[in-house]
Design a protein around this nucleic acid. Structure first.
Length: 258
DNA sequence: ATGGCACGCATGGCGTGA
């Protein structure tokens, strides 16, 4: 099973890139973040014309997540469920071929002294509790998406310059790792322990792509019984070089499910 | 040290992203 994740930064703007990638790469599952479209404006027909099923939840202007899948999901749920701040356009859970897949768009955080950063840190704790309620670390499960955290110094260019950046600050890294430690394995890092490979390159530094000055903040993780079956995990840099690209690019992983 | 680019929107300026 091939699963991919991609922060599209507007599904309507990135539709040609997504359609092209689906056709050429033929993933079983593609998780999208920052679709930036209300459900009524989601380009459903363009995407389902490919044969993929689309499961999505969005809002005006911001956030929004979607899962495109070759087969229809056996279960679907949006957000944390219950209470306030369900964040339905940041978390989507589907079950495909019996495997729970959680696609998240983690809050970015803005600045260290911003309430948004406190919200980001709390989000990781809420997510850990969500995993505790809904998953078992002894059974196959996948968590993927835009995590807005570079876990280690190798995962960002010039780490010494970014110690106070909301995507590399020690508190963000600790919060992310605490959620990971519930029982997930970063499959890219497991297969490529020493490779520096980024998934995000800032628009505002157009030379960053050629200079390979980016961030690895998009991740695919699996519980141990599934992580051991991961045979490949790769970043596809080509779509970042495309005309009218997203500032993120695709990460994909292949699992041997026999 | 600062700003830079792109996105959506009751849109020619702002909030947001990372």
């Amino acid at each position: 099973m091939k699963i991919a994740t991609f922060n599209v930064n507007s599904i309507r703007k990135r539709l040609p890139i997504v359609l092209d990638w689906l056709e050429r790469r033929q993933p079983d599952v593609l998780c999208l973040q920052e679709t930036k479209a209300q459900d009524k404006d989601f380009p459903l027909l363009d995407l389902t014309a490919t044969g993929y099923h689309a499961t999505f939840k969005g809002e005006k202007s911001y956030n929004g997540v979607a899962v495109l899948s070759r087969t229809e999901p056996e279960e679907i749920s949006y957000g944390f469920g219950g209470g306030k701040e369900r964040d339905e356009s940041r978390l989507i859970r589907v079950v495909i071929r019996g495997i729970p897949i959680i696609n998240t768009y983690i809050p970015q955080g803005f600045e260290l002294d911003s309430p948004k950063y406190a919200y980001k840190l709390a989000w990781f704790h809420r997510l850990r509790r969500y995993f505790e309620r809904h998953l078992s670390r002894d059974r196959p499960a996948i968590w993927c998406g835009d995590m807005n955290v570079a876990p280690e110094p190798i995962d960002v260019h010039s780490p010494e310059k970014h110690l106070k950046h909301v995507c590399f600050h020690e508190d963000a890294r600790r919060a992310y790792k605490n959620t990971v430690s519930w029982g997930f394995v970063d499959v890219f890092r497991r297969l490529h322990p020493d490779v520096q490979q980024f998934t995000f390159f800032d628009y505002r530094r157009p030379s960053s792509l050629d200079a390979n000055k980016g961030w690895r903040i998009d991740h695919i993780l699996a519980t141990p019984p599934l992580a051991t079956k991961c045979t490949r995990a790769e970043v596809d840099i080509e779509p970042r070089r495309a005309k009218e690209a997203s500032d993120h690019t695709f990460l994909w992983a292949e699992f041997s499910l026999e």
